[in-house]
Design a protein around this nucleic acid. Sequence first.
DNA 1: TTCATTTTTTGATTTAGGTCAAATGCCTCC
DNA 2: GGAGGCATTTGACCTAAATCAAAAAATGAA
Lengths: 187, 187
Amino acid sequence: MGLVSKIQTLTGLSPEAVSWLNNALETFSFKKNELVLKEGKVCQYLYYINKGMAYGYYHLQDHEVCNWIARENDFATSYYSFISQQPSYEIIACFEDCSVQAISYAQLNEMYRLFPESERAGRLILEEYYSRLEERLISIQFKSAKERYLTLLKNRPEIIQRAPLGRIASYLGMKQETLSRIRAEKE
Amino acid sequence: MGLVSKIQTLTGLSPEAVSWLNNALETFSFKKNELVLKEGKVCQYLYYINKGMAYGYYHLQDHEVCNWIARENDFATSYYSFISQQPSYEIIACFEDCSVQAISYAQLNEMYRLFPESERAGRLILEEYYSRLEERLISIQFKSAKERYLTLLKNRPEIIQRAPLGRIASYLGMKQETLSRIRAEKE
DNA sequence: TTCATTTTTTGATTTAGGTCAAATGCCTCC
DNA sequence: GGAGGCATTTGACCTAAATCAAAAAATGAA
């Protein structure tokens, strides 16, 4: 399922909008460990992952904090930088070779202008981002390390399988020693 | 400073938009401890506080979790419910007698339709909400209870002065016993 | 003013998860 | 295929903040 069909599942788009969008989309490939977005650059694209796994992280003091992990059929962008077109403190990189579709900020706004019904899709994507963040806050604040791990294992097992442990731990808000122990105790 | 001037500081609005907006705004008064939004209701308004202090909280298991605290010249709404027009799990209530301006969801969208330049203001307000949430996540995840308290004391001292300790503690993600001890140790 | 209720403080104890350090496993690339 | 470098596991110990419990202070209604 590509970006266009994903948007179709969110809201109906006219055939004209679909065709315009297909034309506006770009595709990119990234190698394993390649940087999709460097720190301090403005994020120009909203990405949609066709193949591979990518993640967003930022520097905090001396260590790196993983903010999100995305796999096939997930949107991926430095939300804040893309929306505000300000330099990004978030870095986007790839766990695996990735192939992605992408729409630029300018083209996205052009789409809104040309096809006002597409605003709804844009809004729904942003809402999704906001909800994810809210859920993460609640999870970090009120759930134990073990509960967080089990929730991720249940909801997104492919992350547990395909991402390195240290990054998963950081994403879950714990030390990798802790995650290692949790994982050990359960079998 | 009312809602209209606040928006003017975010982005320019045409005199027509300003006049239309002034007409579209409603004003409400709420008594201390009155509920502005009940759990399960759709949040119909984006509020702007002219006088008083309000807060948003939700039920989690047996206790209440404070999500935000707003004072004069802050926007206040159940973000998720307002944006998606879904029933709200968040409850809005008042610490003090409040007088607020409010724009309804329908009128806000009408404004976007009539005055496309106002979209920018809307987007900026939502970005602000998103950033606040991100900051809170970082603060809960990486700062100690004491650091969180000191940051709030520095950035928004009026909250420390005017809101009850239990709610502040909940907002800061700690138990009120902890907040009480932190407060005691510093003088 | 007094009594009742709520809010805040103080004290003793427990615990989840962090920290530091070392050992083991496992890629990958000359 | 062996050496060096990562990633992961394991162990011992420590600490911030939660929990449980009770006292003290503040608030407000009659």
